[in-house]
């Protein structure tokens, strides 16, 4: 069993030479096999948490710790974090023109495993995973995210999740912009990956809709860079009914 531990995390971004604190002390523990939903209004710091875990250079951790089974994640480079077993499914996946999906997946798999995958099983695995996500095989020969629709990009993120088999996956608003069919297909992919490898999931979402397909064990409500409330799945139901209004300053 693995544990991803976030302790009193403070994160800032610098814009126009002014440092602005976005996360103001976040503490969270995720174990293998658990699904934690992070919910909250826009601008509450949900995506900042996701990118800070992955190590995006735009975000500066000013204090606090992130550890993976006791190892200091903050001391690792972006690629080292991925190789240690962390995965970030991005809200806005980046286009890398001219690099084919198949080349990208094989290169990433080789980097994560430390050795090239066996060709025959790898081709079969990729094909099967793409089939499960209803991705046309021609995607394998297209450039990474190049000209992909929003839904195709999200499927491609989950394809990577299924093939790279991380220990912990952070899903940053994977549900945004998906229609109901795509949402179901993508959710099934996450559930398959979790069943296959007992992965821990940090599911970041603005809406409760995805929680019909991916059942959270814990729900954390982010407001203004801190966790304002925590609970079980029942908290999500309450948010579904009430929205975030009670967490926000009363409208003037």
């Amino acid at each position: 069993m693995s544990t991803l531990e976030i302790r009193d995390l403070h994160v800032a971004i610098t814009a126009d030479d002014v440092q602005k604190e976005i996360l103001r002390g976040v503490t969270l523990t995720i174990n293998s096999g658990e699904t934690h939903a992070i919910m909250g209004p826009n601008g509450s710091g949900k995506s900042t948490l996701a990118y800070s875990i992955a190590g995006h250079p735009k975000y500066t951790v000013t204090s606090g710790t992130i550890t993976l089974d006791g190892e200091d994640v903050l001391a690792m480079s972006v690629d080292e974090r991925a190789r240690a077993g962390l995965f970030l499914a991005m809200q806005y996946p980046v286009e890398v023109p001219g690099v084919t999906v198949s080349n990208f997946l094989r290169t990433a798999k080789t980097a994560i495993d430390g050795e090239a995958p066996k060709l025959r099983t790898w081709v079969k695995d990729v094909k099967e995973a793409m089939g499960n996500l209803r991705m046309d095989p021609v995607f394998a020969e297209r450039g990474v995210n190049e000209g992909f629709s929003g839904g195709e990009k999200k499927r491609h993120e989950i394809l990577q999740l299924e093939l790279l088999k991380p220990r912990f996956a952070v899903l940053d608003e994977t549900d945004s912009g998906l229609d109901v069919d795509a949402l179901r297909i993508v959710s099934e992919g996450v559930n398959r990956a979790q069943e296959a490898s007992d992965m821990g999931v940090l599911l970041i979402t603005h809406y409760t809709r995805i929680l019909r397909y991916i059942k959270p064990d814990f729900v954390h409500v982010f407001v203004d860079g801190v966790i304002a409330e925590e609970g079980g799945p029942e908290l999500a139901d309450r948010l579904e009914d009430e929205g975030y209004d009670r967490f926000l300053p009363a409208a003037v």
Binding site: D79, V94, V96, F104, A108, A111, I112, L164
Partner: peptide, 14 residues
């Protein structure tokens, strides 16, 4: 640099 981040976030060295 966003392309670099994306690839590195998949374990690929810089």
């Amino acid at each position: 640099d966003q392309q670099l981040f994306y690839l590195m976030a998949r374990g690929i060295p810089e």
